[in-house]
Design a protein around this nucleic acid. Sequence first.
DNA 1: ACAGCCATGTAACTTGTTACATGATTTT
DNA 2: AAAATCATGTAACAAGTTACATGGCTGT
Lengths: 201, 201
Amino acid sequence: MSVRQSLLAILDQGPCYGYQLRAEFERRTGSSRPLNVGQIYNTLDRLERDGFVQKGETDSHGHVYYAITDAGSAAVASWLAAPVERSQGARDELATKLAVATSLPGVDVAGIIRAQQRASRAQLDELTRVARAAASLPGPQELGRTLIAEAGIAHAEAELRWLEETQRLLSRHPEAATPLALASERPKRGRPARVETVAIA
Amino acid sequence: MSVRQSLLAILDQGPCYGYQLRAEFERRTGSSRPLNVGQIYNTLDRLERDGFVQKGETDSHGHVYYAITDAGSAAVASWLAAPVERSQGARDELATKLAVATSLPGVDVAGIIRAQQRASRAQLDELTRVARAAASLPGPQELGRTLIAEAGIAHAEAELRWLEETQRLLSRHPEAATPLALASERPKRGRPARVETVAIA
DNA sequence: ACAGCCATGTAACTTGTTACATGATTTT
DNA sequence: AAAATCATGTAACAAGTTACATGGCTGT
């Protein structure tokens, strides 16, 4: 939702045309990830469909302006007022992967963790470089870049801490990582079990 | 991708039918978020379309078994071998929101941050309770629940740290949070500017 | 008999994302 | 003249998610 809502929030400042919106979004977020222009037009279509913006006039340069509606302004206010729920709609990809991996037989979980640590550290380094570069540059446009880089740093650090914690957990309680075989049918259903319920050694 | 890949990884242990797959997934991940059954069948259709699984026979109970293909097994191996890239495909919703919010005039960013801190702390408490409950229970099924809860804890803590850091940044350098007005056209295009490029006081 | 779970599936929808087509204008 | 940028748009797709229809079986 963040692209959709961000574009709407920008439109709350005044009518914009598509290409301009992309520039505004990137200026404000420090172009952390480039935004494909096509997405702007998709999103504008959807926002119009939902009654949050209205397609306005085309000026002498062919710029097609979109203006926010009252419903759109209200949506922006709600968005700003409501906290972001990290849980909703987002499964933690790494945690899910490791949870599943530890339940699988013959998987080198320790190796996966080490590989992930290397990758996360590399990303942390990269983000640190980005944040330092942004801090050394002038201008209010760098705030967005800094904020987003710092958020990435915080999450990468959290990931590394969690990976270490997981290493400790698995080495201290190796029995917890017993692979789970596919559960057999409930007996009442009586299908001949192809795999046993019990853990595989 | 985590649901799709997890289901495929489970199928790598042996053929399963849809409903069983959901139970396996939830057992391994500790049902951190319940998985709608319909999604299983969607995902199986898509995996079959992509050549990673094959629809097998229906047993006497009407259970429709799916079996992994060689291509599917290879995909599982790649998934396990490759680190998760947090950056890809994922914009940080909170960071994007605050980056945009600080660029907007008349927005109470400090208030947004405080509200987010309350929400994040509440979630941290909730996850801590979940993790404690999982730790006190026996059985290898609790490992997944613990892992996922701890990951949530780590990220919630990272969020709180980042929010404090952002507070410091904004209070120490209030000039950085100067709202950005909509940029006027480039002069060469000569459209009369409706808004000024310069910052709004 | 009825509630509820087991089980399969379909249809629709969301946000994000990319690739492509098209043309005007600008820069080199 | 060619390359790059500005600008609008379309079409398709990915992955996740939900709501619904349908039917069998189970326990009370």
